[in-house]
Design a protein around this nucleic acid. Structure first.
Length: 499
DNA sequence: GCGATCAGTT
DNA sequence: CACAACTGATCGC
């Protein structure tokens, strides 16, 4: 393929081939034909984010993995990971205790999709069902798109899948469900169950198998009624061979079921797709996330700007609990409300429930979703009686007008509302550092606190993660404007320079 | 009625 | 303020 210009190529940036959209991998002017899609033009105009960011090729560190002495506050909970065992390290525990997934692996399903069963590292346990890889095996289930000569209606001709959702050298896409059938894609990965990622998934889905965590799989089935035949749940920290690629899901520290997706190609190349994630020190303990081992990083850069600072989740939870205690002490007939999207922020209201020993009330649809997590510590605190003094409501309804009305529907049981909006980012810089400076918004009997409880990485967390991982190439998965992407590239270069 | 798309909301 | 992630209105089938 055409190398950009004739200038002396730096050590060949990776990846060097065309991707599935046929975009040249090397930076070249957008002039390259009107055939280039809008996405590609945009991409080139903004400068590339897949040029090599490091001078020399990655080197393994001389010593073993740094910081392996697992100084996590709690001892290890159950370890289901052969990878961790292989490394002889304790697996960091996810606070709150959504320890693991217990849903059994459906063997038949793996056979159906031609996937090799989990590989147990070290042990030659092999796979019990070495069915051949049948990359086109599901094509028979594809819906026929109109008969011969029948043009596809506009509704069936959605935008094309952008390049950053495709995994080069594989027939995989990540979070690409709104484009109908993606050409060349025979396995569709879903990083987590949030609308902007699963958008386009409906019960009519028929374009290929969907790989995701077991928890996400349950939600896809339950909430979207996607045909189970298409849903392929994968356990975390377990290697699967899919279409010849070794795939491992890792805890993403975003929302329940959210996963980082690690791909190892047969040629040894490794890619990490973060989906949405909140980077943490404990991630650095993961055997697959050791220095210099990831060639290409697909990065969630939501808050990749130094203006985004927020405290650790634990600090925010502590603040929320303290505040709730204070209000209840002053007025025992206070209703505590926590706003939340469909999934996410569970630890905020779970912490209140545990600290104040009150059950969690929420509507039937959310109860169903929360119970599906199979998270006993949460399930046992959920109640269906709205007399409890802790309610979870949709974030959108946590405003003064709604809460005032809501209070009235509860017939005198409560005389005041204390509500929390755990939003990713609160504007004030002060509140990022000093939670006690947060000023609530009060209106009559209703008080609302916006709290900086984020399920995305802060700027410094992102920086620390990238500086630790030292990937060869970083590709942002967030579509921002040209200026912000240029700025991000500058940060990446800074973080990775002189390695 | 269903789903895709876009505009609006906090 | 910007942001993620949703909700609602509208339109075509």
């Amino acid at each position: 393929m055409a190398t950009a210009g004739g200038d002396a190529d730096p050590p060949q940036p990776f990846p060097a081939d065309l991707d599935d959209n046929g975009f040249p991998s090397l930076p070249s002017p957008p002039a390259a034909a009107g055939s280039t899609s809008v996405f590609a033009e945009d991409f080139y105009r903004s400068g590339t984010d897949w040029s090599s960011l490091r001078d020399p090729p990655p080197r393994r560190p001389p010593e073993g993995p740094p910081g392996v002495k697992a100084k996590e506050k709690e001892g290890a909970s159950l370890v289901q990971s052969s990878l961790f065992q292989a490394w002889g390290i304790e697996r960091p525990r996810r606070e709150g205790g959504a320890a693991g997934h217990s849903s059994p692996v459906q063997k038949s399903l793996f056979q159906a999709w031609g996937i090799e069963r989990p590989k147990r590292e070290g042990v030659g346990a092999g796979d019990p069902c070495p069915s051949p890889i049948r990359s086109g095996s599901w094509s028979g289930r594809k819906r026929q798109r109109g008969g011969p000569g029948e043009a596809a209606p506009a509704a069936m001709n959605p935008r094309t899948c952008p390049f950053y959702k495709k995994i080069p050298g594989t027939p995989f896409t990540v979070d690409a469900f709104r484009y109908g059938e993606v050409e060349g894609c025979s396995a569709y990965f879903l990083s987590h169950f949030h609308h902007d990622h699963y958008g386009g998934l409906t019960k009519k889905w028929c374009h290929g198998p969907i790989f995701c965590s077991a928890l996400t799989a349950r939600l896809v089935k339950m909430c979207l009624s996607v045909n189970s035949d298409y849903i392929c749940p994968l356990e975390l920290d377990t290697e699967y061979v899919i279409e010849g690629v070794t795939v491992t899901l890792l805890e993403a520290n975003h929302c329940p079921g959210a996963a980082l997706i690690h791909f190892r190609l047969s040629d040894g190349k490794t890619y990490l797709h973060t989906g949405d994630f909140r980077a943490s020190r404990s991630m650095q303990l993961h055997p697959l996330l050791q220095r210099g081992r990831v060639n290409l990083l697909y990065l969630d850069t939501t808050y990749c700007n130094p203006k985004y600072k927020f405290p650790p989740q634990e600090d925010v939870i502590d603040f929320v609990v303290r505040t709730a205690r204070r209000y209840l002490a002053k007025q025992p007939k206070t209703l505590i409300v926590v706003g939340a999207y469909s999934i996410g922020k569970e630890n905020v209201y779970l912490a209140i429930s545990q600290a104040l020993d009150v059950p969690i009330y929420t509507d039937a649809s959310r109860r169903r979703i929360l119970h599906s997590f199979d998270w006993p510590d949460l399930s046992k605190r959920i109640c269906s009686c709205n007399q409890s003094s802790l309610h979870v409501l949709p974030l959108g309804s946590v405003n003064h007008e709604n809460l005032k009305k809501y209070l009235e529907t509860l017939n005198q049981k409560f005389v005041a509302v204390l509500a929390f909006r755990p939003t990713g980012w609160t504007f004030s810089e002060a509140t990022g550092k000093q939670l006690d400076l947060i000023k609530p918004s009060s209106n009559g009997s209703v008080t609302i606190y916006g709290v900086p409880y984020s399920e995305h990485s802060s700027f410094t967390e992102l920086r620390d993660f990238v500086m630790f991982l030292r990937p060869q190439v970083i590709r942002s998965v967030n579509v921002g404007n040209v200026a912000s992407r240029d700025k991000m590239q500058a940060y990446f270069r800074e973080w990775l320079k002189g390695s």
